[in-house]
């Protein structure tokens, strides 16, 4: 219990520190003493870095929480929120808007992405039906994400201009570059609602540790749980993809990082995963801005580059345990 509280406090402190760091970091390093209205560098902080930083916290927390909830629900430490088709659906929506060149309006792309997420969520609910079965759920998610993925590939290959193609490909890599307060306003209510729904699942996920039969005999309503997970993850992931593109690995890695500290109980992993997700994305986004590259490294790529070696470590550790 106390270890969990300690970890949460440490993570919260880390987020506060990383938040400040993220406001300072970038091509132009802005020290603390320039943080006053009137300083010529202040608009960079207020209009560019602050919304971007807030968005990194929100998206990171939503992805971390979704990952922890998905792993708890599927009882599989390799489950990822992307498994479930919603991020591919959201990406497809965004790609369609880019394909038709609608991206000129700042609001249209996220709205298309959210529509895509909503449609894939509805499809998922429809495919799963009233069974409440986890295997059907996983299969339906795989089907939706592969169909959405192939449609996205189709849109890329048929894109009207090379410019559209490069725009699509770049967007798919995920980033928080040039995000504004509009994006924050759009995503915040959706992410908050999704996170609230997922936060309700903690104890039920714990009960699911004993398997479906035992959980049902303890009064778990599998249909209600599935609905909470589907809508909660769809809101979190859909709104994240709509504002930041696809940022993989956060939902997959973060629960692994916190389990050594708080134990394996799914409900104990939820809050620290949200906090650690926020911290991870804050740090990664500060890093891509601070790196001396010609054009900014895409956040989605940075996360995947971190994710690969991370899973190598997980694999090596697992192999040692099995040997």
């Amino acid at each position: 219990m106390n270890r969990a509280l300690g970890l949460n406090l440490a993570l919260a402190a880390g987020i506060a520190a990383a938040f400040v760091l993220s406001l300072m970091a970038g091509k132009v390093w802005i020290p603390l003493d320039a943080w006053i209205a009137g300083d010529p560098r202040w608009p960079i902080i207020a209009e560019l870095r602050l919304p971007r930083t807030v968005l990194a916290v929100m998206v990171g927390a939503a992805l971390g929480l979704s990952g922890a909830a998905m792993q708890g629900y599927l009882r599989n430490p390799l489950a990822d929120p992307g498994l479930f088709g919603v991020s591919s659906g959201a990406a497809l929506g965004a790609v369609i808007s880019l394909y038709f060149g609608y991206a000129a309006s700042a609001w249209l792309l996220p709205v298309f992405a959210l529509t895509g997420a909503g449609i894939s969520m509805a499809l998922l609910a429809l495919l799963v039906g009233r069974s409440g079965s986890i295997i059907v759920f996983t299969l339906a998610g795989v089907i939706i994400s592969s169909v959405a993925g192939s449609m996205t590939a189709l849109a890329i290959s048929l894109a009207p201009t090379p410019f559209a193609t490069s725009q699509i490909v770049t967007w798919l890599m995920g980033a928080l570059t040039d995000r504004s307060w509009d994006d924050v306003t759009l995503a915040l209510p959706l992410l908050a609602l999704g996170a609230a729904l997922l936060a309700c699942t903690g104890r039920t996920l714990d009960a699911l540790t004993l398997g479906e039969s035992a959980a049902r005999s303890m009064g778990v309503d599998p249909l209600r749980l599935q609905l909470l997970i589907v809508i909660g993850v769809a809101l979190c992931v859909g709104a994240s993809v709509a504002t930041a593109g696809i940022i993989g690995f956060v939902g997959l890695i973060v629960p692994h990082l916190v389990r050594p500290f708080v134990g394996n109980r799914p409900s104990a992993v939820l809050l620290p995963s949200a906090l650690a997700g926020a911290l991870l994305l804050l740090l990664a986004d500060s890093l891509v801005r601070a790196l001396p590259t010609v054009s900014e490294l895409r956040l989605g790529i940075a996360m995947s580059m971190l994710g690969g070696p991370f899973f190598l470590v997980v694999l090596l550790r697992m192999r040692r345990r099995l040997a």
């Binding site: 039969s213 005999s217 303890m218 009064g219 134990g263």
Partner: peptide, 23 residues
Amino acid sequence: LLPQGGDVHWDIDVASLVKLGRY
């Protein structure tokens, strides 16, 4: 109900597992 097989999907400690019975 004590189902057949007795799955435990996460490696949690004994006290936490018994507490699940209070669900």
